[in-house]
Design a protein around this nucleic acid. Structure first.
Lengths: 245, 245
DNA sequence: AAGTGGTCTAGACCACTCA
DNA sequence: GAGTGGTCTAGACCACTTG
């Protein structure tokens, strides 16, 4: 069904087969046809279904494993990743606990409002002036100790009815999964700041003490920005760590 | 020559063929047999030489491209990457100029000493008590403006005679290439600090003003630490940015 | 036109997991 | 032992670059 297009239409109009397959399979995950945590059909069955060779199907599946959509285990099968799992949900957090594992902390005191996007939100989220956003304010704590306050903006078109749900207590990655959005990449800018009186209050530190400011944009698999967040963070028994390849 | 081992010895003693190929090809780069910037033989010639199928050779070459050792270009060939190029040498720097490109800055006022490794150096570089290190102190500037001061430690065994060379004016990645070491990954811890009187002097900022402290370990392709560096950085017209996947 | 990497195929066998 | 993913093979054809 997919293969035909390779034969009939000129190449410059089409993508390589394995990329088309990736898109088709990713859509099954995004649509909820394949649920998080469940196994999907094996390589050769999928190859038969899509009328491609097993090698091409494998290339698509390997790609998706690299995109954190699937996990493949020899002898067991191929499974849809649960983005709300601890490991994956913390994927875009570079803050680590003393044990060295990425941590998100627990969410607390969530507030949500909506309004039309301001200049900053428009440039960061690549949306236009008439679009609106949800604005979420929240605080994160680790074993009761507040260490981060943050303000996030999300396009309303991508998260319809978000303000009426309780899901705001989840991070962006788990949230995206609920709305059929597959997370892709993120960029984070790190800078120095000093605590405003209010920030000092919530973080439990002295006014004007230095804090680290994390300005992050999370994108969907297709590159669309889905969240812009600025976080003010008090690192003390935690640290910020980046791995580079 | 390589393939034989697959047939004769049990699998748990050996690595997959494509990984053995990667090691063999990487060795040709590290040893200087294949020079930075030069083209290497094509896929099928290499496959013939190593007596493997073209597909297996391709898997090894693709892997090496992902490790930044090679660049493949359709219609042109496969080329050995020059690690001292601007792009690759700045690979482990998350500091970006206003244009958004990674920058290393220019090195200035380099000092080098050597001595036996202290506790911190032993743990970070995973070397033992009797091993010695080179200690390099230097300052980086961008168009004349000093923005970073740093202290680096390198195992003497990996960089013999480093103190007698002028190469210290190069960053670790270009340096490693000269010594036949292929760079792999790096980790960097980011924390807050305040400028000591001396640091304030060199960075041209007020005493006790907040600076960002970058604690980085660079590893070779095989995982061995090759440099531990602590940098004190004054971000002003620059910013620190991380991409996450 | 010749040579390169990129895609795709069809099939074999191995290593691992689990009932 | 049946079923899964992981490795490896041999070959075809396509897309791109360069002379």
């Amino acid at each position: 069904m997919l293969g035909d297009r390779m034969m009939t239409s000129p190449r410059f109009l089409t993508k390589p087969l394995y990329l088309q397959l990736r898109d088709a399979l990713a859509d099954r995950i995004a649509s909820g046809e394949w649920k998080p945590g469940s196994a999907i059909p094996n390589e050769s069955d999928l190859a038969r279904e899509f009328e491609v060779s097993a090698g091409t199907m494998r290339k698509a599946l390997d790609l998706m494993e690299g995109e954190h959509l699937l996990t493949r285990r020899q002898g067991r099968g191929t499974f849809v990743n649960d983005q709300s799992s601890d490991e994956l949900a913390a994927r875009f957090s570079n803050i680590r606990g003393s044990e060295g594992k990425r941590i998100c902390g627990q969410l607390k005191s969530t507030q949500i409002t909506s309004g039309s996007a301001n200049d900053m939100e428009r440039t960061r989220l690549r949306i236009s002036a008439q679009d609106s956003v949800y604005r979420v304010q929240r605080v994160r704590h680790d074993r009761g100790v507040v260490f981060q306050a943050e303000e996030a903006s999300l396009p309303t078109t991508l998260f319809p009815g978000l303000d009426e749900k309780k899901d705001v207590a989840h991070g962006i990655i788990a949230l995206a999964q609920d709305y059929g959005i597959l997370p892709g990449k993120a960029e984070e800018r790190v800078s120095l700041g000093e605590a405003s009186p209010q920030m000092a209050e919530t973080l439990g530190i002295a006014v004007r003490s230095p804090v680290i400011v994390l300005d992050r944009v999370v994108r969907a698999l297709d590159g669309r920005p889905i969240e812009w967040r600025v976080a003010w963070c008090n690192l003390s028994d935690k640290y910020y760590m980046v791995e580079m390849t």
